[in-house]
Nucleic acid binder design. Sequence first.
DNA 1: CGCGGGTTTGATGATGCTCAAGCCCGGTGG
DNA 2: CCACCGGGCTTGAGCATCATCAAACCCGCG
Lengths: 197, 197
Amino acid sequence: MPLTDREIDLIKSVVVCRKLRRRQYFLYEGEVSKYSAFIIKGAMRQYSVNDKGMEHTVGLFLETSWAGNRESFMTGAPSLYFVDAWEDTEALLISRTDYLNLWMSIPAIVEMSRKLTDEYSFALQKRLHSFITLSSEERYFNLEKTYPEFLQRFPQHIIATYLGISRETLSRIRSHTLKPMEHYGTFPNYVGGSHAA
Amino acid sequence: MPLTDREIDLIKSVVVCRKLRRRQYFLYEGEVSKYSAFIIKGAMRQYSVNDKGMEHTVGLFLETSWAGNRESFMTGAPSLYFVDAWEDTEALLISRTDYLNLWMSIPAIVEMSRKLTDEYSFALQKRLHSFITLSSEERYFNLEKTYPEFLQRFPQHIIATYLGISRETLSRIRSHTLKPMEHYGTFPNYVGGSHAA
DNA sequence: CGCGGGTTTGATGATGCTCAAGCCCGGTGG
DNA sequence: CCACCGGGCTTGAGCATCATCAAACCCGCG
């Protein structure tokens, strides 16, 4: 994107690179998000923990995307979610005030930021729609199509909570749809997964 | 919000008031959203229809909120959703190009628009979270607390698809939680709702 | 009176959760 | 080299929740 040298310098002067170790927290529930993180390398997750200790994954983030809690970062409200590094990661951090300053001085930042927010909300919309209209199995296939990288980089039990299902159910969904190839021919009576025409 | 007279005139010059009759479509699936609608009076809904003809409500809108499909409006992509009036409604319409012009000429619009987008995405986030973490019943109570007006203005079968459950299930959820008052005194052993504590 | 939209109720089956084992595999320490 | 451990994945049995189908009900209206 088009930035002048001086703008780039300005950005460099307020951004700081930070390394996070696997499992290291970036933001705690109840804490106010002081920084937003642009991931250079690694994988992060955003999740809530309920009274029974169950984790529910709200967001998964890989390199070249922003992790953190936008709502807390923008409004200053305490975060409802934890954010931590799933893999060892490197990220560029920027504070809210520095962010607002960039906003003032670099027009392209305003535009970029608007686009990001829009795309973020469109993605949310799609994910919400998948919850309203799709079955667990369909949601899984949908994820497989939309973000195949997630399935590579995060373990199944995290993917399960991202899909809003139990790990056992996810395991069964995967095995059902693999079986047809695996024991091809072993069961004479087996006719495949599609009973209901 | 602070606007000069000339800014107000400018806005008035591009906005048009339109009446929609109950059940009248504002936007069809597959169509590009040319206008965004600010509801003055009435109620609108945004929903998808699947291959089996089932409707799934993505959004409900009352007076002083914006209805339409933001994604289609902003990106020019064909809408995945229908938008129609549930009650007779009056709305202020603005076209995308006029909207962008206002954007250019009125700084306060940029700011307002940013806030709206942010709040919209925070609301989406919350609703998504409710789908990941809450049971149907909890989602219903949550809606009752968050948008009680919806329960007044929209019929149950629409609320049901908004919550992602069947109308029958919603009906049962409601009756279960009303019973305690209804047959108050009919069962000698019944001692009221507050056993615990 | 009959009709239509909306809601309720019951019966039944599918789906998915929970609990409890067991498995697989890489890592660590005896 | 093997025994053991922990994290993650799988499998099975039993149960709760929910969708579906079908019927009835309710009520405002022509």
